[in-house]
Design a binder for these strands. Structure first.
Lengths: 139, 139
DNA sequence: GTAGCTTTTGATAACTATTATTTAATTAAA
DNA sequence: TTTAATTAAATAATAGTTATCAAAAGCTAC
C-alpha cells in the first residue's frame, strides 16, 4: 500500500547520528544532536543532520516527535510511549504511563477521519526549572 | 501567585479576530486567521494578528494549541477537549472523546515534573484527503 | 583497478513562520 | 483638549528548517 521501503545506506554520518541519539533518554532537537555529533565528526554540516534525521524517520528507524514547542525533536525508541514537556525550558522526557490502546477505537467511532495513531503529551515544570523558580521567589 | 491579570482592551481588531476565530470549528493558524480577518478589516497587519492572538491566549480568552506541525494554531473554545490532526493536510479538528482526568494523577506518580496538564492528539487522514488519495490510486 | 554512474556530503542560499522595532494613530484620563 | 499610555501598521530581524549545488565518496561492470 505504501511506497516500497526505500533502502537507506548506513554512512558514517548516519551511524554516528543514530548512535548519539540512542545514547540519550531525552529527545534532542536537530541542533542539539548536531552539537553532540560534531564532537565525533567535527566537519559534519547541520544540513546533513536534518536531512538524515528526516530520512531515518521516514524509514522507521527513529521517531520524529509531533510535540508542541517550536523545534522538532527525535527519539531513537520506536515503541509506543508518552511524553512530558517542560513549559519553562522546553525539554521533553519519556513518561511511564501505560499506553491506552482503546483510545484509537473510541476515537474512530466519533470522527470521519481515518485514524492512524495517537499521542499523549503532558506539560509541566521539570526539576531543574522548579529549583530555579524557587530561587527567584526568595529574592 | 501569577502576575496580576493584565487588563486587555477590546479594540476593533481584537474583537474581529475573536469573532472570526469563534466562527469556525477548525483551529486556524495565524495566517489563516489573517486571511479571514482581512475580509472585514483589509488594512490589518499580520503582526497585529500574531500579537493579539498571543495576548488573548495569555489572558485566557482563547487557547494556543500545542500540537504538532510547523504552525501554531488557535482555539476559541477554552474548555478541555482533545484534537485530531490530518497527517496529509495538517488540518486540526476537535474530537469527541471524553477527557481522562485521571491521567494527570497517574503521571504525577511517575515523574519528578510538576504536572500542569495534558493533551491527547490523534493523527489521521481527514475525509477530504481520503477522497484525494482514492483518486490517485485509481490511475 | 578504474571509468562511469549514483548517492551523499558540506557549504551556502533560500524560505517559512514568528517576533521585535519603530513611528504614527487611538484611546483614556487628567 | 493637552498629556500620557496603549495599540496599530509597516517593516526589519530572527529562528528553524529546507533546497540547491559542486565536490567527495561509494558502487558496479568491465
Amino acid at each position: 500500500m505504501n511506497a516500497p521501503a526505500p533502502m537507506i545506506r548506513l554512512t558514517t554520518q548516519r551511524q554516528i547520528i543514530l548512535e548519539e541519539l540512542s545514547k540519550v533518554k531525552t529527545h534532542p532537537t536537530a541542533s542539539e544532536l548536531y552539537d553532540m555529533v560534531r564532537k565525533r565528526l567535527p566537519r559534519i554540516g547541520l544540513g546533513t543532520v536534518y536531512r538524515n534525521l528526516e530520512l531515518m524517520a521516514e524509514s522507521g528507524m527513529i521517531l520524529k516527535l509531533e510535540v508542541g514547542g517550536t523545534q522538532k525533536r527525535f527519539d531513537a525508541t520506536t515503541n509506543e510511549h508518552y511524553h512530558i514537556r517542560c513549559s519553562a525550558c522546553g525539554k521533553v522526557d519519556d513518561i511511564d504511563v501505560p499506553v491506552i490502546k482503546e483510545l484509537v477505537a473510541q476515537a474512530a467511532n466519533t470522527t470521519p477521519y481515518l485514524i492512524l495513531g495517537h499521542h499523549v503529551e503532558f506539560t509541566g515544570i521539570c526539576s531543574a526549572c522548579q529549583k530555579q523558580q524557587k530561587m527567584h521567589q526568595t529574592h
